[in-house]
Each structure stands twice: as C-alpha cells, then as structure tokens.
Design a protein around this nucleic acid. Structure first.
Lengths: 195, 195
DNA sequence: GGACTGACAGATTTCAAATTTTGTCAGCAA
DNA sequence: TTGCTGACAAAATTTGAAATCTGTCAGTCC
C-alpha cells in the first residue's frame, strides 16, 4: 500500500477482494497482506484472528443488505408487507443469479459466524415487526404479538430468503409459490370482521 | 449369504446396513457385496449402478415416512392440518435427535436424487391437499385452489421439515416458532364471515 | 441357459510427506 | 512510542504415488 498507515478499512477492502478472487476455502491472511503490500503480521495488529477478519467482512456485507430493505415506502400494511418480502426475495435471488460464486462465498462466511447472522435476522425481523405494528395501529392487521407475528412471517418465508434454498430459486415455479405463500400469510394476518 | 439366489431385497437391506455403518462417503459397492458374501459383479446384476442402488435405498426410506403421515385421524380441518404438520415436524426432529449420523447419511442420499425427492414431496403435498379439500368441503376452510394452498402450507413450513434446517431444530424456541407459523397459516386458510 | 465370478481399465480415494498457513513475538525503524 | 517486520512453532492444507473402487465382460459352475 502506498499510504503511510494501514487502516482497518483498507484491510477489510483487501480481504473482500481476496475472498471474491480466491473463494472462502483458499483466501488466506497471507493473501490479504500480500494484496496490501505488508507482512501478514501487520494484519494481526488490527484483527485478532482470521476468523475475526472474516466476521468483520460478513458483518459489513450483511449491513448493506439491511439498508436496501429499510426504505420500503409507507402505505397499507398488506401492501408494505408484500413489498418488503418481495424486495428481500428479489434481492437475494438477483445476487445468486448475477454472481453464484460470490454468493456461495458469502453463504459460507455467514455460516461461520452465528452471532453475526443472529443479529442480522433480529434486524430483519425488527423491520417486519414495525410494518406489522403499524398495520395493527391502522386497524388493517390483527395479531396478539407483533414481534412473534413478524417472526412467524420471517420463518414461513425461509424458503425464499434462506441461502440453504438458493438452488430452488431458479425453479420457474418459484414466483408463483412465493406469491401463494405471501397471500396465505397476509390473509392470516389481516383483520377479519367478527361474525 | 447362505441363500441360493441373491435377491434385490437382500442387496437393499445390506446396502442400508453398510450405509448406516460406514456413512454415505465411505459405503462402497464392494462393501455391500462383502456383507452379502458375493462378488461386487453380482450386485451390478441387480442394479445398473451405484447411484441406482443408493436411489433405491432412498426411495425405500422415504416411502416409510409417507406411511406414518397418512394415518392422521379425521376431524375438523384446522385440527387435522395442525396434527399433520406437527407429526411431520416431530418425526423429523426425533430422527435427527435420536441418530444424527444416520439422519445426515439419509440427508446426503436424498440430496443425490432429485427425482425421488420430487416424488416424495408430491406425495406429501397430496396428503395436505386432501386435508385442505376436505376442509373446504366441510365449509371450514376457504381457498381458490386446494392444491396450490397445500403447496403454500408445505413451502411455508419448510423450516420445520427441510433437512437443510435440521440444525435449528434443537433451538428451544423452535416449538413456539412452529406453533406461531401454524397459527398464522391456519388463520389464513379458515373461512371468515363476510362483512 | 441363467446366475455368479474375478480380472481388468479407468476413475476415484487414501495416506504420508512436503508445503503452506496461522498466530506470536522479539526486535527494527521512523 | 507506535507500527511494522520476519522468523518461528504448531496446525492445516496440498501433493502425488499407491491403493481402492466402479463398471464391464468373458468365462465358470450348476
């Protein structure tokens, strides 16, 4: 590196590059150091272990995913709910289809750090919860517990956002199946007139 | 083998044994032949390939799973639906917890033959469809298309029956999450009074 | 004749040696 | 003093030669 000081950000960027190039199995700390033109000992000055470095890359990547979903526009809760779920599914599917290898790399990384993934899921369920709570407020949805309902919606759509199911996302029937599940979930959530 | 003739059933049983003992990575056709006291050429007399033999074992295993679910007793559709889903989840979870290695073995086998698994899923969705259709008949459920509704219920519960999620089944919260998803799905399916 | 064997070629897997990587740290350089 | 280097031990990975396995088939046995 031409810069005088080696920063955490530089290392993260280089690590991301190396992971993209060599994949999760072959990317080494030495590779990262070489890409930066420093010794690998320097990398250990900023990250306590290879695992910590990878975790930081994973964290960064997942945080970018949050951002895209937080911007679903206001409106009727059923519409927002469907838009949010659709955005999540569409974004994930686009990533696999655009660059399967990179997606596979990040799937491996995510699988390595259960704490990072748990926080990410919490964040996503939190976004869903907000939509559900707003819907209840507006009298559009009915549920005893917005948080657990949000979690149920997230769990019920696992097939459409969990990387473990990525291979199924190229099935031509997947869109219809996604819509069917959405319909069912929203139907289960909307407030029905009491007889 | 002490018997005069080598049968397909004997080979299947031996193959099952060998797979259980050595796991999917190490179980060989030679092992199966050795277990039967015959040359491996004899095995190829009954099965065209190692893959076909494994597929037959997989098929047999999945067929046993069908049987247990087909016996859900009659009653109100929401009750039957929950009972069926609960039976599927409970049976799968019991298998992982009782013998994780054997479950892993069969998960690998199932992953190898997409046609066998597709037929199995079709069978399961068929059982669900029957319950849904009966519920519509009784005026308990409302849906435009029983088949697609059944499929949606199956897809929405993937986290509770797909082996890809087996690691999550030992989470203490999983039962509550399963119930929450069931509640939501059944609520989406039951016939509501028109306002 | 029909069921089985065993030798064979090519593909795959195994195992141990050689290399590489991880993580540490005393020392160097600015 | 702060940040980096490079040598080092232990752990992990790669390599390639040897062993094993898959699938075939001419031949044996009843």
């Amino acid at each position: 590196m031409s810069d005088g000081v080696l920063t955490r950000e530089q290392i993260l960027a280089a690590a991301q590059d190396v992971l993209r190039r060599y994949g999760p199995a072959k990317a080494t700390v030495v590779d990262v150091a070489r890409a930066l033109g420093v010794s690998h000992g320097s990398v250990y000055r900023h990250f306590p272990s290879k695992a910590a470095l990878r975790e930081a890359v994973t964290h960064q990547w997942l945080e970018q995913s949050h951002a895209a979903l937080a911007v679903i526009p206001d409106g009727p809760a059923p519409v927002r709910l469907r838009a949010w779920l659709s955005a999540l599914f569409t974004a994930k599917r686009k990533k696999v289809l655009d660059d399967p290898e990179l997606f596979a790399t990040y799937t491996v990384l995510v699988g390595e750090s259960s704490t990072v993934i748990a926080a990410h899921i919490d964040e996503l369920v939190g976004q869903l919860e907000e939509i559900v709570a707003a819907g209840v407020e507006r009298g559009e949805l009915a549920t005893a517990d917005a948080r657990s309902a949000a979690r149920a919606v997230f769990d019920a759509t696992a097939r459409f956002h969990d990387p473990a199911h990525a291979a199924e996302w190229s099935d031509p029937a997947i869109d219809a199946q996604f819509e069917a599940v959405c319909d069912l979930l929203i139907s289960g959530l909307v407030r029905h007139a009491r007889p």
